[in-house]
């Protein structure tokens, strides 16, 4: 099985945008410290704090450009001079050359790739997020993890095949507690029956509720399962017991729709692995509900999990 592919927020994939900034040359590099200190105080450019203040324009470092401010910040000034930008009372005007415009990155680099791209135009600071680097490396999961993921997704595929034989949408879902690899619930789709909202994921979530003594649909079908020992198993070590799908992982053969993706937000799922993408899917294709700004819970999503087997279910081979 290939590595499941993480679906991160768009910010991690975007091309670095460039914008106009005024810069000036520091005439004598011995005044660099003074210049930087005063500029940082007068124009901190907080929104762009990833941009280094000074750029050395040749290898010897004897020609230094210093960042003043975004062009837009002085858009109302007719004649853009050092005095107008920094202030007439400034003590560093004498150390600087005439201001001129350059292109600098106006999106903050968040990945190594974006950092390389951005640095071509202007030096940027970059605090590497090791988790993001690993996720983008294409080898995030080790062999043992891959085997577990494969095992659970195969179970979901099996359920999708059962669903197909019952003339239902070929979608299967499994919810697992990753701390002990125990299956909490497993389901297949039933939307073609008399309840159009009974998608595999919605049923799987309701079966988790049932494992906790709740649940709404009380479906009786031997192919739909939930772990009946979970309450007693947890209550010995954890007095509060499980809460919704907190800490659980979902394996589902097809990318969830908007309803199911949002149901997973409400249910506090931990991670979602899916096989095939869907053009209206809400976890990467049409929306990215799992990273949606404004929502109070986010979760990790991986696509192309056991994709060959899943794609066969949807004639996408």
């Amino acid at each position: 099985m290939d590595q499941p592919e993480p679906i991160l927020d768009d910010r991690y994939y975007q091309i670095i945008q460039l914008g106009d900034f005024y810069v000036s040359v520091i005439k004598d590099k011995k005044n660099t410290t003074k210049v930087i200190r005063e500029l940082t105080e007068r124009m901190p450019n907080k929104e762009f704090n990833y941009l280094k203040r000074v750029k050395s324009t040749n290898n010897k470092g004897d020609s230094l450009q210093v960042l003043l401010c975004p062009k837009d910040d002085v858009a109302s000034i007719n004649e853009v001079t050092l005095e107008a930008i920094i202030g007439e009372d400034s003590s560093i005007l004498q150390y600087l050359g005439k201001p001129f415009l350059v292109k600098v990155p106006v999106t903050q680099p968040l990945t190594k790739k974006q950092h390389q791209e951005a640095s071509l135009n202007w030096p940027c600071t970059f605090h590497e997020d090791k988790q993001i680097t690993n996720l983008l490396s294409g080898k995030y999961f080790n062999d043992i993890e891959i085997e577990k993921i494969k095992k659970h997704m195969l179970k979901a595929v099996e359920l999708a095949q059962i669903s197909q034989r019952k003339q239902q949408e070929p979608i299967g879902a499994v919810i697992v507690d990753p701390t002990n690899d125990i299956i909490i619930s497993a389901s297949h789709d039933l939307r073609r029956g008399d309840h159009p909202l009974q998608h595999a994921v919605m049923i799987c979530i309701d079966l988790v509720a049932r494992s906790q003594g709740g649940g709404m649909w009380k479906l009786s079908d031997n192919d739909l399962v939930y772990n009946q020992d979970i309450n007693t198993a947890i209550s010995t070590e954890n007095k509060t017991g499980p809460y919704l799908c907190t800490g659980y992982d979902l394996y589902v053969t097809q990318e969830p729709c908007s309803m199911c993706a949002m149901a997973l937000v409400h249910s506090r799922i931990n991670r979602v692995f899916y096989g095939s993408s869907h053009k209206e899917g809400a976890l990467g294709s049409f929306y990215k509900i799992h990273t949606q700004k404004g929502l109070n819970h986010h979760y990790e999503v991986y696509k192309n999990t056991l994709s060959i087997e899943c794609n066969k279910l949807y004639d996408q081979t």
Partner: peptide, 17 residues
């Protein structure tokens, strides 16, 4: 129901079904 998807709208839809 311990099911975070049991919103008023879903419950009402099921009553109509």
């Amino acid at each position: 129901t311990k099911n975070a998807t049991r919103h008023a709208e879903i419950v009402a839809i099921e009553k109509v079904l």
